[in-house]
Design a protein around this nucleic acid. Structure first.
Lengths: 128, 128
DNA sequence: ATAAACTCTCCATTAACTGGAATGTAAAGA
DNA sequence: TCTTTACATTCCAGTTAATGGAGAGTTTAT
């Protein structure tokens, strides 16, 4: 498939997908006639995965590492396992923080009455 | 307190804290003699909050909005509530994705035996 | 055949920092 | 008091991960 189809399926912009090709993250085949990039389903799966990881602030380099968990046949599974566990730990770290951010906002919502009075117990919470 | 103390407490770099002052996100008082930035506990609480929100990819502009939920006394609580609920929804969205990323990695770990054999059921999972 | 839609490369710009130089201030020890 | 060390300031350049636009070629649809 062409780049716009791949972008659509992976919910990334065409620009971003092209960028990932430029930096050799997901390198599609090329149509020899037109020079157009030609994406497979596997390519799209990788793009999806990268999109997900990027949305959680894994850097491009970390994404490369994560992708290599899938791809690098020369790595022992021991090493792969170690790397993956480290990534999971860092995800769990973020997950914890995530909940605390959500809780802070939830608390705000609950303590606001939602009418039109312009008051809310505000900096009390902030400076706790 | 001085900037390095504020940075330490908020787990941000001094550079970042100074940057947030430059862009008028958290503007500390100034020591009139030295010109040094002087942070209060409230300032640190704000920095903490911004740090948390940034780690979840809320943009600087969104962080400003979130901060205004706490600070803007001129906003009706109705409006505040609406904004906050929208933010919570977007957090929940991210949370869902987060879990799916974690699951994908967990699955990888579980299907690896963790010994030294260089094999792992890899692109099978990717191309599912 | 020609327009619309899509693709390409290349170059500039953006957001949110990050690093480094040059310089000023403050705290601690001799 | 002097001075060394640690910390602070501004300013400017560089980085990461895109994003936007120009100019030109390709494909598809009428």
């Amino acid at each position: 498939m062409n780049i716009s189809q791949a972008a659509k399926l992976s919910k990334l912009s065409v620009k971003t997908v092209r960028y990932y090709a430029d930096i050799k993250m997901v390198e599609p085949a090329r149509n020899i006639r037109s020079g157009y990039r030609s994406y497979t389903n596997d390519d799209v799966a990788k793009l999806n995965f990268i999109g997900k990881a990027r949305r959680f602030n894994f850097s491009i380099e970390e994404c490369r590492e994560l992708l290599s968990l899938y791809q690098n046949k020369n790595r022992s599974s021991k090493e792969v396992k170690k790397l993956t566990l480290a990534k999971i730990a860092s995800i769990d770290e973020k997950l914890k923080e995530f909940h605390s951010l959500r809780d802070e906002l939830s608390y705000l919502v609950n303590c606001c009455n939602g009418d039109d009075r312009p008051s809310c117990p505000i900096l009390d919470e902030l400076s706790k």
